[in-house]
Design a protein around this nucleic acid. Sequence first.
DNA 1: AATCTTATTGAAAATAGTTTTCAATAAATA
DNA 2: TATTTATTGAAAACTATTTTCAATAAGATT
Lengths: 155, 155
Amino acid sequence: MIDLEQRLRSRGCRLTSQREAVLEVLEENQGRPLRPEDIHALAAKRLPGMGLTTVYRTLELFCELGIIAPVHLASGRNYFEVVAGKHRHYMECISCGGVETIEVCMIEELADKVRSGSDFQVTSHCLSLFGYCGECSRKGVAEGHARAGRGWGAA
Amino acid sequence: MIDLEQRLRSRGCRLTSQREAVLEVLEENQGRPLRPEDIHALAAKRLPGMGLTTVYRTLELFCELGIIAPVHLASGRNYFEVVAGKHRHYMECISCGGVETIEVCMIEELADKVRSGSDFQVTSHCLSLFGYCGECSRKGVAEGHARAGRGWGAA
DNA sequence: AATCTTATTGAAAATAGTTTTCAATAAATA
DNA sequence: TATTTATTGAAAACTATTTTCAATAAGATT
Ligand SMILES: [Mn+2]
Ligand SMILES: [Mn+2]
Ligand SMILES: [Zn+2]
Ligand SMILES: [Zn+2]
């Protein structure tokens, strides 16, 4: 539960029903990154007439407030998720597109190596693994099947 | 030096001057991920009249052939780089947008943890660090300055 | 070399995602 | 309640990418 009003006030922003709706949708979907379009569809159920433009504006604001963070998956599209206590990463199936969550993060070690090797000041990072989810592996999709999404592999 | 003709033949594809131009541009820029637009501009110098559409088609083909791989940075746009022997990652400055290369990769360890914890079959991954490059840090940009790019932080 | 087949190309149109503009609305304050 | 101005939704603008299609050219066949 995030105290939205507090965070907004601290920046001179107003608490609106649209912002509450977007936050509720995101909070109810922790562990499942959502696209702006999805968020709009879900928020519009609670608040009929709500515009997609407002969703985009709200997502940008929430990112600045540190309430949410963008998640970069293979499609290149933007997904968002609430920044909960623990830092998460993702595994995306290149066959069915399914996304699974990784609760482990070992980037600190890498960041340490970077610190000692350069003067770059790391503030955040993005890591996603791509491959085949259990179900798709079992179906044998991994053999014949070309990569999904835009057709581009990942790196 | 990649034997383009070989790889193309193996898939029944033809060797064209456009494909050669795109590969040359990418090979001359190892360590510096390029956008389709940049690649087009550089390739068109060698081959006047070359279309952007062809660049997109060629990039997709090269990805499938394993010649290049997409690089996902904070902007969400697509960058590409030749898949050289070593696997690389990147650091992108959220102030000036500069990209630096990391030659270290410790994802194997993470992949191991994933393997033992789920049935997901990892085939590739994507990791980028965000923060401030040495120059921007020194300028003190890191303090006042809001994040760059689309305004979204990174994760 | 001339001919044939069809993969490839460039231009234009179409799509998709996101941002900007602007007049109307509503949240916070006085 | 009146005032101020941040916020909103609709439409238009923009950017990146994909699709369509007729013209071209690579590679195979003669
Ligand atoms: Mn992490
Ligand atoms: Mn790696
Ligand atoms: Zn799957
Ligand atoms: Zn910088």
